[in-house]
Design a protein around this nucleic acid. Structure first.
Lengths: 201, 201, 201, 201
DNA sequence: AATGAATGAGCCTTCATTCAT
DNA sequence: AATGAATGAAGGCTCATTCAT
């Protein structure tokens, strides 16, 4: 009886998805392995078979999540030609009904809070940031080549755009009554135009 | 007729300070009441005398912290005359050796992660945001009156500046190797100038 | 400044009364010294001045309570001439609105539960029982002398009457929906008449 | 597919028995979960697996206890033919060496004390009372049919007998020096005969 | 591969008691 | 006489992890 080779892949995906949802709902500090088992439809021992410890599981969850978000953003960007349009293509990230948003944001905050004190999580963030930066940098370099943007350092600007986006999105998520989507979209547009386009400051 | 009338005030301050440091060091998810008691030089029961539960204490810690940071920022701003200078006056917030920074940032991330799921913490953030916004708005309105800035909505711009600052600071704090202080300062400058000054976009 | 000699008496009475009410409301197992202090309008230290420990206070409370109930019963009995009337004179003990009832019964159950395991409380009960028995015995002896009762051992019968009363009252108190007052009064009457009056069994 | 399908039943029985003994020995107010764990030969977590909280366990303990006592009484009664004999068949309840007595009585007093303030316990008593009453009522109805008893309301008399029994047993248990077994047995006999048999009162 | 019973350390909270004032 | 701050032991409960089956 040969083992089913894909079983591990299937189980891990099933666990990761259940864990992400559960962590998002309860928060890192409160979620229990039992919660996750229940959501994954597996027993404690079953889960332990694939992820040896809570920490190992959490790292895997966050890694997978970051990768997925990044891939999706990459694909969205690829739909546009114009560099500016590419940089403004993350509209879906301001859609509360989007599953990656309503599940993802809470997890992101948890992960930040963990990253402050634990290297492993910090490194997850670092990798994610670098992925974003290289994506944005490509678009900026293209804009530079086409002469649309003013003279600037593309990497450092890419970092700034990424950071600005996150700052605005955070406000939008934590206090949406005072920071509605229109405000977020407009503020982001203005800020990155200021960073990119020629002006007479 | 208590012997030392200020005792409660003293003790509460002592507890709050110890708690802030301890939470900052270990993180909300890991800190124990015992840790805090030890740091405060009080027994469990002694602490309970002033703060009845962990949650009550934490809310008090965060509230006090937000207030202090805000007051300090206010005072810093007041040192400058020029509206732009006022808006750029938060340099100390990029100083890793500043106690409010190395103790404060970790706590801030914890609080965000809590705010995602708990109203009480969310409301703490809301109040803090509003304080900042009104502070920044005053400076912007002054700039508008003086004709330094382009035509803009001062409140919405104040929100944007505050958000942009936080986004950049987050990167700087979580991944300072790739986001050094110079990058943070420069990026902030560029972004808010883009938001404020007349340009020909 | 001579101390006020009656102060101790006043304070102790005040504490005992507050303690009785508080114990009755929360139960021995749950009541705290703080509860009692609050009810007595005294501080912890103030109370400790008069009763050194929780146990000391509780014993005093129960002792006082038993004594008061007994005195009241004695006075009630004294109102009647006829021996049978005397023995049936405890009607007030079936009045839920009577303070000695609605405060007293709960405390009585607590005390029983304590008496099972602790000699001190058992001895309190013993004394109370003996008081009752001697009271009832006097009435029975009077009935015997008057030839109203059949030939019987007055002490042992006094114990039986007392026990029967308590059994019926317990049912009445714990499950009054199924054991209404009329049932209690009637059952008591029938049972003691069976114990006392001549019959042809 | 648990390896031992009856394991839960076995464990629960083991826990319930250990808990009953431990509660009986220390009293509801003093017994700790640790005591019970030790007696049951289980760890804290192990016990929690079967009974989620102290209260849940206690309710189960009392319920099981009441049921067992009732079943035993039922069986004892069934050994007799004559209605009066049936009603007098509870001799074992006056045997201090009987495990159901020396373990059971203390628990009964605890339960009463709890029942005063908590509905859940009160309802346990109510059910127990009703069981007893229906048992006694059957015997009384039989006696009525056979013409042995005087004209009476069988249910209300059943309640009275049950209450009288409990009152006498309480005295016997709490103060056996003054209320010996012979007194208890005799008093019970006299009282219920007075309640049942024709007399010329 | 999967189950879930069992462990036991750890946590928050409660509370009788003590004691300086 | 009276206060109430402070102690610290103890209790109930949670939960990641282990392991026999």
């Amino acid at each position: 009886m040969p083992p089913i080779p894909e079983l591990e892949v299937i189980r891990k995906a099933q666990i990761l998805e259940a864990a992400l949802k559960t962590i998002s709902a309860s928060g890192y500090a409160n979620v229990t392995m039992d919660d996750i088992c229940r959501a994954a439809g597996l027993s404690k021992g079953g889960l332990a078979h694939y992820y040896r410890s809570k920490n190992e599981l959490f790292i895997a969850v966050f890694k997978e999540f970051f990768e997925r978000i990044f891939q999706r953003s990459k694909q969205t960007m690829a739909l546009y030609e114009n560099p500016i349009d590419k940089l403004l293509s993350f509209d879906w990230l301001y859609d509360r009904n989007d599953p990656d948003v309503n599940v993802g944001y809470p997890v992101l905050f948890d992960c930040m809070s963990l990253a402050v004190r634990e290297k492993e999580y910090r490194s997850l963030f670092h990798d994610w940031f670098e992925n974003w930066v290289s994506l944005l940098k490509d678009a900026i370099d293209d804009g530079l080549k086409k002469g649309i943007f003013r003279n600037l350092d593309s990497e450092s600007t890419a970092r700034a755009i990424s950071a600005v986006y996150q700052g605005i999105a955070t406000r939008w998520y934590l206090d949406s009554a005072s920071h509605p989507t229109e405000w977020a979209v407009e503020s982001f547009k203005k800020a990155i135009k200021g960073l990119l386009l020629p002006n007479n400051i």
